[in-house]
């Protein structure tokens, strides 16, 4: 197991390095005209534009820039924003924004996981019954209708109906409700539909038929055999989903004016703010790879039949 973990950590490190270096180099292929607006071209002559770019550091050799980035990283310095929030330290920008996305993300995971898994069990247990039909209807609606429509509907109508604020205020907890619900709805459907699917699959397996024919109560079969085995497939995604809540949601955060991470990457890419882009890519890559790794460990923990390392100790 120890060697497996070490090997996976090594692979993860290589993956992260490849992702970060690739994105770093791709960013340097962007044309420098992106740093100037029409007004800048009117105001600045060539000498002023070149001086501006030189001071940003984007005229340096890309490998020199990479070395600076890596050197800073070793010292815990992620650099400063160059165009989106000029001169603001990237670390403080992320430290300001990430807690909002994390809090809403974790709250929505708790809600969507508990309600979604509950709904999934209910749908599987009453397959083709009313609960199943209603659950399927919900999932179909949430997935088929563009999210902007129902998100805007929730924001506009429910806030009006309940007399709640339309946007998020840190000091007014009632304004947290609608964004949390909005964050949760799609995830709730995802958990429900996949758990139902895996439980229905398990229900048709021989060991379930055998347990039922032995006279085990249906509740015990559902809980002790079907649910447990169906969950094995799902649990591997949990760590990644939890870790990547830090990414936030571009749409929901924008609708409710939540100052989270949602739009940061897109804005930074649009404005060619390399220090912010490369830091976010690094962060997401690390969390993504770590999530997959922890998912595998969790799966092995939930289902002892899964061996991550072979008997010879060479690793799976």
């Amino acid at each position: 197991m120890g060697s497996y973990i070490l090997k996976r950590l090594g692979q993860s490190l290589v993956t992260v390095v490849i992702v970060v270096v690739s994105v770093f180099m791709l960013l340097r292929l962007m044309p420098n005209s992106g740093y100037f607006t029409r007004e800048d071209y009117v105001n600045m002559d060539q000498a002023a534009r070149t001086a501006y770019l030189r001071n940003l550091g984007v005229l340096d050799n890309p490998f020199v820039q990479l070395a600076h980035f890596a050197g800073g990283l070793m010292k815990g310095d992620l650099g400063r924003s160059i165009s989106l929030y000029p001169r603001s330290p990237v670390s403080s920008i992320i430290a300001e924004k990430a807690p909002y996305s994390l809090c809403f993300g974790l709250a929505s995971i708790i809600i969507s996981m508990s309600l979604g898994l509950g709904l999934g069990v209910l749908m599987a247990r009453h397959k083709d019954g009313f609960a199943d039909w209603m659950g399927t209807l919900y999932v179909t609606v949430v997935r088929a209708i563009p999210s902007l429509i129902w998100l805007f509907f929730i924001q506009l109508w429910i806030s009006g109906l309940m007399g709640w604020p339309m946007i998020f205020y840190l000091d007014r907890p009632v304004s947290w409700i609608l964004p949390t619900i909005s964050f949760s709805l799609a995830g709730l459907g995802w958990y429900a539909i996949w758990l139902r699917r895996f439980m229905v699959d398990e229900e048709n397996r021989d060991y379930v038929k055998f347990a039922t024919s032995k006279g085990l109560p249906r509740t015990r079969v559902m809980r002790g055999h079907i649910l447990r085995n169906a969950m094995v497939v799902l649990v591997q995604y949990f760590p990644q989903q939890i870790l990547l809540t830090i990414a936030g949601s571009l749409l929901i955060e924008s609708l409710y004016n939540i100052p989270g991470m949602g739009g940061l990457l897109v804005s930074a890419v649009r404005q060619q703010d390399n220090p912010i882009v490369q830091t976010i890519v690094l962060l997401y890559a690390v969390l993504g790879v770590l999530g997959v790794f922890l998912g595998d460990l969790l799966m092995a923990f939930v289902d002892p039949r899964i061996k991550l390392a072979d008997c010879s100790g060479k690793g799976a």
């Binding site: 100037f36 007004e39 800048d40 009117v42 105001n43 600045m44 002559d45 000498a47 002023a48 001086a51 501006y52 001071n55 940003l56 000029p86």
Partner: peptide, 25 residues
Amino acid sequence: DPKNGIKNLSKDIRKLIFGLNNYYL
């Protein structure tokens, strides 16, 4: 000071204020 990246210091203003253009360049 060009190091401060004040992009709206236009060439017209640099040429308007005495001695500024040469100082900047």
